[in-house]
Amino acid sequence: HNLTITQGKLFFHYNPKLCLSEIHKMEEVSGTKGRQERNDIALKTNGDQASCENELLKFSYIRTSFDKILLRWEPYWPPDFRDLLGFMLFYKEAPYQNVTEFDGQDACGSNSWTVVDIDPPLRSNDPKSQNHPGWLMRGLKPWTQYAIFVKTLVTFSDERRTYGAKSDIIYVQTDATNPSVPLDPISVSNSSSQIILKWKPPSDPNGNITHYLVFWERQAEDSELFELDYCLKGLKLPSRTWSPPFESEDSQKHNQSEYEDSAGECCSCPKTDSQILKELEESSFRKTFEDYLHNVVFVPRKTSSGTGAEDPRPSRKRRSLGDVGNVTVAVPTVAAFPNTSSTSVPTSPEEHRPFEKVVNKESLVISGLRHFTGYRIELQACNQDTPEERCSVAAYVSARTMPEAKADDIVGPVTHEIFENNVVHLMWQEPKEPNGLIVLYEVSYRRYGDEELHLCVSRKHFALERGCRLRGLSPGNYSVRIRATSLAGNGSWTEPTYFYVTDYLDVPSNIA
């Protein structure tokens, strides 16, 4: 807008934040220059609390790290170098490059900038070799853009010569660093050979998330399962459950009422301010606690030095998902009996873990797994792929695949051998790939016309006998059925096997 004052003059007093240069501009645009008398524009009460600059400061050096910015700028000295009290560095987070010096300023003089007072450097006698002032900004957020400017702080001049310097606002972004852990990993099994893994992005990506790394490792069953005799009275049979499938998407929606109208769909109840505040506090606490764990609990591995020492970490090797089922080394339970199943799973520490690289999504279907087997899954978020990966501390989750139908069934015939004193040795093959492992066998036998009897055969007993022995049988026709019990439950009964026990007292003698 054009402003013209045809008559009258300007009068400025007691404006401590208004620089004289701005008042002189007002004289020019209003056409009143030359009308004012000496005392109409006070030299001592206008701009006496402001830094009124008329020179431009330029930054000469900028260096960044993930949490620091090192700045240096060209030296500046007023005509009387004693008038320079120091520099004021202003900075704040700036997602967009549209910041002005006066953003967030209120009537009390406060604003949204963080201000650092910096002492002037030592003055050199040689004007050509003056030290460049600077400042190291610490405690910054990774991968965050900051708006920065600097200006001088000078003393009051009796001659009211307006001098000083100020830089333009520059924008500097800190470097990326390792992201925080992925949030809320959930693993479920939808079949006997697959596990579905879902997660949420890290709360602090500290860069642009480029991919996720998912490692999985087959877990050995508890050692007590191999040692305890679950045929003993009072000892509860062990059981394991597989990871249940995901709930429906509708039930997972946030901010939804727990109660549904019987007449149909209901609208979600909005969260109160107290609920939102509580969630923010919980989120802040979780982030602080995660940072504490990362800094205190997890110790970084030592990389190899120039002395030739090897990095103890196993090298990563990509495998196809079809090879995942046989990740671990199978060892027989008892070496003397080769027909026992290889369900003991000690994992070799030198073995390469299978892994998958996930790009542009937060889910993965891990296939080719062994049925009813526990897996430990390790999830890392990465925001750099080359020249070397920059990934987060791992988040861990466990899951067990679903049982395989008929995996616990005894394959092959049940054979028998009759000894003296009416002892019958029953023999059968253990299931080759049971659900988890076989903890015991149930032997059901009966003599024709009598009630059915049951015998429990422990895992250890089966390994020693290759089956079991029935003792003290009365003469007669017998039928026997056997079924295995694994961590997933009972298998199917075998087809009945028949044998006849004679009275050993009636056996004919070869003595003449």
Rank of each mutant, 00 (worst) to 15 (best):
N422V: 03
A381R: 03
E221V: 04
V424K: 01
N339I: 14
Y500P: 03
E351I: 14
L440R: 06
E452G: 08
K236Q: 12
D409S: 09
L369Y: 01
D311T: 14
K233P: 14
V334Q: 06
D250H: 08
S474H: 08
F355I: 11
V443G: 00
T241S: 06
P312N: 05
E430S: 14
A407R: 11
P244Q: 12
D250T: 09
A463L: 12
I377P: 00
V501N: 06
G476V: 01
R240L: 09
T386Y: 02
E388S: 07
N435P: 01
S274F: 01
A484G: 06
F298G: 05
S474G: 06
T502N: 12
L464D: 10
E224H: 14
Q384P: 07
C266P: 04
R370K: 15
P300R: 12
K460C: 09
T303A: 08
S320T: 10
T210V: 12
N490K: 04
P244K: 09
E265D: 14
N326I: 10
C468H: 09
K287M: 09
T307E: 14
S474K: 09
L379N: 01
G368I: 04
S268W: 04
S367W: 12
K271V: 05
G467K: 07
R370S: 14
L293G: 01
M427K: 15
R319T: 09
P387K: 15
E279Q: 08
E430R: 05
T333L: 06
K317H: 14
E417Q: 13
E279H: 12
I209P: 12
V345F: 05
N421M: 13
N255W: 15
W216C: 09
L440T: 03
S274L: 06
T340I: 11
E451F: 12
W216G: 04
S342P: 06
P354A: 08
R353A: 04
K236G: 14
R400M: 07
S458T: 13
L277Y: 03
D222C: 13
V296D: 11
V424Q: 02
R481T: 07
P238S: 07
G306V: 11
S398D: 08
P314I: 01
E404I: 04
T347S: 12
A336L: 12
P244D: 13
F355P: 05
H211P: 01
S348T: 05
R301V: 07
C269A: 08
H416I: 07
Q380C: 10
V480F: 07
E433W: 12
Y478H: 08
E389L: 10
D229Q: 07
V358Q: 14
T502M: 15
V393W: 12
R301S: 05
S509M: 07
G264C: 03
N477G: 10
P354V: 06
E279I: 07
G306H: 14
D503A: 05
S344Y: 08
N326P: 12
H294M: 15
C269T: 11
S344G: 04
N208R: 06
E356A: 13
A407T: 11
L237S: 06
H454S: 02
T386A: 08
E356Q: 10
Q256W: 09
F246M: 08
L455D: 03
G412V: 07
E227D: 10
V327C: 15
V345H: 06
P314K: 13
F246L: 10
Q429E: 15
P354D: 15
P338V: 09
E430F: 08
T343I: 08
N421V: 10
E495N: 12
E362D: 15
N435I: 00
E378K: 08
M427V: 08
S367P: 13
S304Y: 07
A309P: 08
D273G: 06
L228N: 08
R313L: 05
S342K: 03
D229A: 11
S392Q: 03
T340G: 07
P387T: 14
P338A: 09
H294T: 03
A381K: 05
C269I: 13
T241F: 14
K432M: 05
N295P: 14
R400D: 05
A335V: 11
P354Y: 15
W216Y: 11
T415Q: 13
D229L: 07
M427E: 14
S479R: 11
D409V: 09
V439G: 08
T386I: 15
E227C: 10
E227Q: 09
E224I: 04
L232S: 09
G467W: 02
D204A: 14
V214T: 04
L473K: 01
S274H: 12
H352R: 06
F462Q: 08
E279C: 01
C267P: 07
P403W: 13
Y445D: 00
C269K: 03
Y445Q: 02
V365R: 11
W242Q: 11
F226N: 12
K287S: 06
K278N: 10
S315N: 11
R469E: 11
A407Y: 06
E442M: 04
G234S: 11
Y396V: 03
G368H: 04
V331D: 13
Y396M: 09
L277S: 02
Y448E: 02
E465H: 11
P434Y: 03
I438P: 02
